[in-house]
């Protein structure tokens, strides 16, 4: 279970998160919706440990571990995964090398045996097939020359290989056409189960037609101002954020 209590954080002295309270029980998928500048991406970066964000108060724990005290790689090994809004291109780093290094680093950190090149390739091909990705993407540099859709599918492939206990998807739907959106959603839905939870961060309700959340939270000006069931997303789509803010 992910438990966030009274979390405040700032960038360059400017407060962005102003006291977030949120619980995502194991096995559930929650959505966070909010307008631009509400702190959605900041929340995902703070939870995954990006430098430059200063936590000024509150706590975030995952299965009882204080994740804010951990290095980014330790958070990953503990089961936390961030799907980036803008996946980084890494020229010169082969996608296959990257994926295998990441998988083996996590396995090693957990005291599991590492996969050799053949074992890895077999696993990767299996997962890629499920995501309608061509083998060709393994040979290329990480995200280099990938279209927007390919980059997001590559994020989902990483999630499928690394098998996190909790995934934070930061506006994974942005820039996707409907076919790519379905593939991404299928990838997330395939992970759903009693041991997996997800925090789906999105600006639009559209993604939530395909990944139906257990709960929806509205983030505005650094705070969760409203929570509800999946119907809340539809309500937002119909009435806009301003109406919700006025009511809150």
């Amino acid at each position: 279970m992910l438990r966030i209590e009274g979390l405040t954080a700032e960038i360059d002295g400017k407060q962005i998160l102003k006291g977030i309270d949120l619980e995502v029980p194991t096995g559930e998928v929650h959505a966070i919706m909010g307008p631009n500048g509400s702190g959605k991406s900041t929340l995902s970066y703070v939870l995954s440990g990006r430098e430059g964000y200063e936590v000024t108060g509150g706590s975030a724990t995952f299965d009882g571990h204080d994740i804010l005290a951990m290095e980014p790689e330790e958070r990953a090994a503990a089961g936390l995964f961030l799907a980036f809004q803008y996946p980084v291109e890494l020229p010169g780093v082969g996608n296959a090398t990257f994926l295998r290094t990441a998988l083996n680093a996590q396995r090693k950190a957990r005291g599991e045996s590492e996969l050799d090149a053949m074992q890895f390739l077999k696993l990767a091909r299996e997962r890629m097939k499920a995501l309608s990705m061509s083998d060709d993407m393994l040979k290329r540099g990480v995200n280099v020359g990938f279209s927007g859709g390919e980059k997001k599918r590559n994020e989902i492939l990483q999630m499928a290989l690394l098998k996190p206990s909790i995934a934070i998807l930061d506006e994974t739907d942005s820039g996707l056409d409907i076919d790519a959106l379905k593939i991404v959603a299928d990838g997330v839905n395939a992970m759903r189960g009693p041991d997996f939870s997800a925090l789906v961060i999105t600006h639009y309700q559209r993604l939530l037609d395909y990944i139906v959340p257990d709960r929806v939270h509205v983030l505005m000006q650094g705070r969760i101002v409203k929570s509800g069931g999946p119907e809340l997303a539809k309500e937002l789509e119909a009435q806009g954020y301003a109406a919700v803010q006025a009511a809150a």
Binding site: S48, E51, P72, E73, L90, T101, Q158, L162
Partner: peptide, 15 residues
């Protein structure tokens, strides 16, 4: 590049 470094670390690869 700090973004590249964070991307790798966020996948569990030590610094």
């Amino acid at each position: 590049d700090a973004d590249s470094l964070f991307y790798l670390r966020s996948r569990g690869i030590p610094e």
